[in-house]
């Protein structure tokens, strides 16, 4: 048993240090996406208004270059789209610019990536697929090893046969009870 406990301690220590970074990634992202019904955890939206000299509602081939010239954007334009007689939409990397061709009113709507949160959510939700799937599976395996090895770290009344066992039981009962209640609706 002592040899087994020694192995558990080694595993728990080595993998524990290794898991710090990814655990913070998944935990921070977990809190953020847990409240997805309240907010967009990856993007912050914005609306900005301005005005240009109205180019008129003529043919798109003539009007679109005028609009782009008057907007004087400092970023690449993906595409333009004549959404209606009076409306030209300009698509840029992080948003859409609606231009009223008659009044010259410009409304820019966009989404900015939230610093840090966008990246941790990208990993947590496995948006990139492919290589990250393997890494995430490996991290999950590390967590399983940490959980199981942790059971055997401490001997005596603070360990599995004492307070530790009670806490472990509470931690198992909580999700089981929730799952049962959730199934009953």
């Amino acid at each position: 048993m002592n040899g087994f406990r020694k192995v558990c301690r080694w595993l728990h220590r080595e993998l524990g240090f290794f898991a710090v970074g990814l655990t913070l990634v998944y935990a921070i992202s977990g809190i953020a996406v847990n409240h997805v019904h309240h907010w967009d955890p990856s993007h912050a939206s914005y609306v900005a208004s301005s005005r240009i000299e109205p180019p008129g509602d003529g043919e798109t081939e003539a009007v679109a270059p005028l609009v782009l010239e008057r907007l004087a954007l400092q970023e690449p334009v993906k595409e333009t789209w004549r959404a209606g007689r009076d409306l030209l939409q300009v698509f840029v990397q992080d948003g859409t610019i609606d231009v009223n061709l008659v009044t010259g009113e410009v409304v820019r709507r966009g989404n900015e990536k939230r610093p840090l949160l966008y990246d941790v959510n990208f990993m947590h939700l496995n948006k990139g697929k492919a290589p990250w799937t393997g890494i995430a599976d490996a991290y999950a395996a590390v967590l399983i090893v940490l959980a199981v090895s942790g059971i055997f770290l401490v001997k005596g009344r603070k360990g599995l046969v004492g307070r530790g066992g009670v806490l472990m039981l509470l931690g198992i009962v909580l999700p089981v009870v929730y799952a049962v209640l959730a199934r009953r609706g």
Binding site: K78, E79, F91, V92, G95, T96
Partner: peptide, 9 residues
């Protein structure tokens, strides 16, 4: 579909 897809083909 990500939000950034607006404007793409």
């Amino acid at each position: 579909f990500p939000k950034e897809i607006v404007g793409e083909k």
